[in-house]
Design a protein around this nucleic acid. Structure first.
Length: 603
RNA sequence: CGGGGUGUAGCGCAGCUUGGUUAGCGCGUUUGACUGGGGGUCAAAAGGUCGGCGGUUCGAAUCCGCCCACCCCGACCA
């Protein structure tokens, strides 16, 4: 006897009557999202609590297929799979202060000795703890380690079925390096992960977009999100149709926008208006009869660089149009500070800011203040603004008259890009092109971590020159269970799910019109066997149900191919074959050609 | 965490305002018959701590109080 190692996978064959697929005509009333409703109705998942789900056999098979593709691509990219605990001593998180930073999002459990453990929301700490003990030489690097594991996050508001859960399945990978550039460096691993992720989602049969996301501590394009394109997605991304540039709203740059000259004449005398108890732009605008796009929104930040803790606070005041959103990252960039944060309201008040009613005039009124003006807010014409005293606003704000010569001092006033990009903004990469919006669901995220965790946890090893240096890390996540739901959001119709072949729980459903007919059953099992030999997974609907029920359920669970075995087709020496994506009854395919037909359709 | 809402059979709902037979209806389930290519028809049946605890009352699904769970909008979301 010879042992063989086969790389040829034989398909699975299962009978509907022998597994658990509890389909339902109606979805539970509390399921509102499409993927949630369809996955429950089609018997894939059941809710057990808020953001907690049972994965029934069909769902488990889909999950496994996603995971297998992820594994293959990760392994091909040189990563190694391991498995870390989900139950983690809270002390680990104290080392990085994430027990506080992560806050209530971190699930905590108490053991019999009253010790607190965390249920891992992500595994930077345990992997760094492992590496710190196991790797003591730069010669052991680079390394890329990953796991596919259940994660726990005590979400403030779990919602949308599998899209935002408290317990979910995630692939998380961590890479370790002594340097960023060059062979064996972080950038090399990051690029490899970018390619692997592109391969994964392509192989899953998903329509997706890789977008630039908020930069990590290393700067540059240090983070990408992989978004499944779906109109029902929660996230908005912006894309330049010309250059292919795409980014999320937090990150998206804009092309040069026209700016004001600060020489435009006033529109009238400065007029103060009493606006009691109106904290929002909308309310004030309605009260004063001024549209938000004619108001200046003035937000106080402080330079949070930890360079000189005793130095007097340095204030950064950002001004954007009332209908725009200020972007903290852009405030940081334009100010040149290494770190900025929203000003502490009490400290800002003490320094002389009328928080909530600030106007750009404070650049002269409060020492150590840098004024940043978004291009769209720098124009002339009518403006309303805060009045620098509580419960008051002013009309006819004029830049030159109100702010004066400070406008000409680049050390005190700068104009630039300060707000989130919006649809119609000029593209930053193609002159003349404008940004378009697109909805998506984030299913992957790759990130250059740098030395944040290795520093915090003391993971330093000597390099070639015997200098102890913190290890540089990258982290790379894929939401496995979320990918399943995102796929349903993207691929469904009124009748049910439409799985792409690579993720379908089974590739082919054989519908028996008369399961009690022995000849029909024999045709079905012979056919299923032949399909399995070709590597195809087969579900046989052998239930004694009426045809309508079975056809509707077939559409609902969404397998790519339906083969119907009934007297009519058999008399013609064939089987009725239909793709899920096609309407109608399908075509009669000669019985001996069915396997080849299926293989061809499944591509 | 703020605002709104819902808990009655596996699922979808009515009943509650105005307390009073044995708590109903549709779907589903079980049994039988007929039927047999897109959720069929008839007959019979099973299935309920009315979210929980306490209170008011002769009597509570219904009124009152406290608690719990879940959903939606917002805040939040490495």
């Amino acid at each position: 006897m010879t042992a063989t190692i086969s790389n040829r996978r034989r398909g699975d064959v299962q009978r509907w009557s022998r597994t658990l697929i509890p389909t339902a005509r109606e979805a539970p009333a509390d399921a509102t999202t499409i993927s949630h409703r369809l996955l429950v109705r089609a018997g894939y998942i059941r809710a057990l609590g808020a953001g907690i789900y049972d994965y029934l056999p069909l769902a488990h098979r889909v999950i496994r297929k996603v995971a297998d593709i992820v594994r293959q691509e990760m392994n091909a990219a040189g990563a190694s799979e391991l498995l870390l605990p989900a139950l983690l001593p809270i002390e680990l998180y104290k080392e990085t202060k994430r027990d506080v930073d992560y806050g209530p999002l971190l699930f905590r459990v108490e053991d019999r000795k009253s010790a607190i453990a965390a249920l891992g929301p992500t595994h930077e700490e345990p992997i760094t703890e492992l590496m710190r003990a196991a790797v003591t030489s730069y010669k052991a690097l680079p390394l890329n380690l990953y796991q596919i594991q259940t994660k726990f996050r005590d979400e403030a508001r779990p919602r949308a079925g599998l899209l935002r859960c408290r317990e979910f399945l995630m692939k998380d990978a961590y890479s370790f390096h002594m340097h960023v550039e060059g062979a064996g460096g972080l950038n090399e691993a990051y690029d490899a992960m970018y390619r692997a992720y592109t391969n994964v989602f392509t192989r899953c049969g998903l329509d997706f977009t890789a977008v630039e996301a908020e930069s990590g501590p290393i700067g540059g394009s240090a983070s990408h999100e992989f978004m499944v394109n779906a109109d029902s997605g929660e996230d908005t991304i912006l894309r330049c149709p010309e250059s292919g540039y795409a980014a999320n709203v937090e990150k998206c740059e804009t092309g040069e926008r026209p700016r004001g000259a600060f020489t435009e004449p006033p529109t009238g005398d400065l007029a103060e208006v009493h606006t009691p108890g109106m904290p929002t732009i909308d309310e004030v605008g309605k009260f004063m009869k001024v549209k938000p796009d004619r108001m200046l929104k003035t937000i106080v930040f402080q330079d949070a660089s930890d360079a000189a803790p005793d130095a007097p606070a340095r204030w950064i005041v950002a001004v954007v149009r009332g209908d725009h959103d200020v972007n903290e990252g852009k405030v940081k960039t334009l100010s040149g500070a290494t770190k900025v944060a929203l000003a502490d309201p009490a400290a800002a008040k003490a320094a002389g800011f009328a928080v909530g009613y600030v106007s750009p005039r404070v650049v002269s009124a409060v020492p150590n203040t840098l004024l940043l003006i978004d291009a769209d807010a720098s124009h002339g014409g009518f403006w309303a603004s805060g009045a620098d005293k509580p419960d008051h606003h002013v009309k006819h704000f004029n830049w030159r008259r109100e702010v004066g010569s400070a406008l000409d001092d680049a050390g005190r006033v700068r104009v630039g890009d300060l707000r989130n990009a919006i649809v119609g903004d000029p593209s930053p990469r193609a002159p003349g092109a404008t940004l378009v919006a697109q909805r998506g669901i984030e299913v992957g995220h790759i990130f250059k971590l740098g030395d944040k965790y290795s520093q915090a946890m003391g993971f330093l090893i000597p390099d070639e020159t015997q200098q102890r240096r913190p290890v540089i890390m990258g982290c790379y996540g894929i939401g496995v269970s979320r990918t399943m739901a995102a796929c349903v959001e993207q691929r469904h119709d009124d009748a049910g799910i439409r799985w792409p072949a690579p993720l379908a729980p089974y590739h082919v459903e054989i519908v028996l019109m008369k399961p009690e007919d022995e000849q029909h059953m024999s045709v079905a099992t012979t056919l299923a066997d032949a399909l399995a030999d070709a590597g195809i997974d087969v579900l046989i609907d052998d239930r004694p149900e009426r045809p309508g029920v079975k056809f509707n359920d077939a559409d609902l669970i969404g397998l790519p191919i339906r083969l119907t075995i009934g007297a009519k087709a058999l008399e013609q020496g064939g089987i009725e074959a239909k793709r899920r994506d096609d309407s109608g009854k399908g075509e009669i395919v000669p019985t001996d050609k069915v396997v080849a037909w299926c293989v061809e359709q499944l591509g």
